[in-house]
Amino acid sequence: MSQSPAGEAAQPTIRQVIKPVSGWQPLDVAEMWRFRRLLSVFVWRELKIRYKQAVLGFLWVVIQPLALTIVYSIFFGYVARIPSEGVPYPVFFLGGMILWQFFNLAVTQGSVSLVAQQQIITKVYFPRPLAPLTSVVSAFVDFLIMFGLLIAVELFYGIRPSWPMLTVPLFAILTGTMAFAICLWLSALDALYRDVRYALTFLMQVWYFATPIIYPLSIVPERFRWIMTLNPLASAIQGFRWAVLGNAPPPPVLDMAVAVGVTLVLLLSGAMFFRRIEQRVIDMI
């Protein structure tokens, strides 16, 4: 109906059409990309607030996994003598744990993010998937720091990084995508039913033990392996260990394909569910 007046042709006019949301629609990636700067500010705020009050600040990102590694190495590596794919147990454990920490932090923060951000969501517009995505990206920043720690520990044990190391981003992206997919599902559900946040702690606990982090995949009995195949995080960790430890067996291609498939299904369904629910959520909170 309206054209930009000739005099203002230099300034592009943004046209928005506001209409009812209907049906099942996927994620609007193009729109999220346009809001990338807001995402970076959200991430910056999250990190800033998370470590501002702590005297040791960012050091906690390193202290936590280091302390966990020591405790687990004593009990599982030294006392229980769990096998560790031919590398020292601390390296083996840390190599799985930091990916788990990334996933865990992203999911626990991201699942409550929609409710946590309700103050802003009801006052200003931005693509709402940005709320859980913020948690995933800020958890990724922590992951990068922990990754530095892992390299340091490897060098301490005399393990030199080898060429599979180049594939690390693939496994990190797979894990991040999976975390985001789960956050889409859970943050929408949490806004409707606060039960989600109470169940989450327990769920993550079970998931932790159902994933080969403190033990190698090889000690899982053959007839239960298929469960591990269905757990995309197990495959991601398996692949990640192969990439960083040099000595660990490579992940079966089939397992990786299943992991990618499961993640994509979760992501697409999560995005549609989120889209479906977000308007109801905003009317409600």
Partner: peptide
């Protein structure tokens, strides 16, 4: 301001 979606009808905003 796009915070809530309408149930029907539409609005076109240039700018």
């Amino acid at each position: 301001s796009r915070i809530v979606a309408p149930s029907a009808g539409r609005a076109v905003i240039d700018g």
